[in-house]
């Protein structure tokens, strides 16, 4: 106790009382109260917990808060305020990607990271960047389509 750490999440500073080795995932969910970021595997195998740290994708389940420092954390709750994130969310709705929806926060954060690095990815580039994100409902074909749609919208 008494390990107050400051985390900057979606532009706001939060005081978090947790050990330095606490995964960012649990700090966000249980202590900051942002539950949109999901727990899937705990060992970076599924991508459900993907957030951005200083603009780059990170699996928050294996990112200790000590590694975050003063970096900016962006979660699903805040990604809609970025142009790319908004385009991705809109495309997700347009293509009706969602089924159970549990993995989609991670998928959207990962897709946003992809489109930020590569504004017009082809199928192979999408596969390479997205294949770390598991969806058991099988929304992959629609995710692929939605990423194309978001890319197109960004260009248009």
């Amino acid at each position: 106790m008494g390990n107050a750490v400051k985390l900057k999440v979606n532009g706001e500073i939060h005081d978090v009382d947790a050990e330095p080795d606490t995964p960012l995932l649990w700090a966000l969910r249980d202590l900051v109260g942002l539950t949109g970021t999901k727990f899937g595997c705990g060992v970076a195998l599924c991508g459900a917990c993907t957030v951005h740290v200083d603009g780059l994708p990170r699996r928050s389940c294996v990112t200790p808060i000590s590694a975050v420092g003063e970096a900016e954390v962006l979660t699903i709750e805040g990604v809609g305020k970025t142009p790319v994130g908004k385009a991705v969310q809109d495309a997700w709705l347009k293509v009706e990607v969602v089924q159970c929806g549990y993995c989609q926060a991670g998928q959207i954060m990962q897709a946003t990271a992809l489109l930020t690095a590569d504004p017009a990815p082809d199928d192979a580039a999408i596969d390479r960047a997205m294949t770390g994100n598991i969806c058991r409902c099988g929304t992959y074909p629609r995710i692929r389509a939605a990423i194309h749609a978001a890319a197109k919208q960004r260009v248009a």
Binding site: V62, A125, A129
Partner: peptide, 16 residues
């Protein structure tokens, strides 16, 4: 692009 090694592999080993 979009999925750097550092997405999962941080600056140090990370206990799970």
């Amino acid at each position: 692009k979009g999925l750097p090694c550092a997405t999962c592999h941080g600056a140090d080993n990370s206990r799970t």
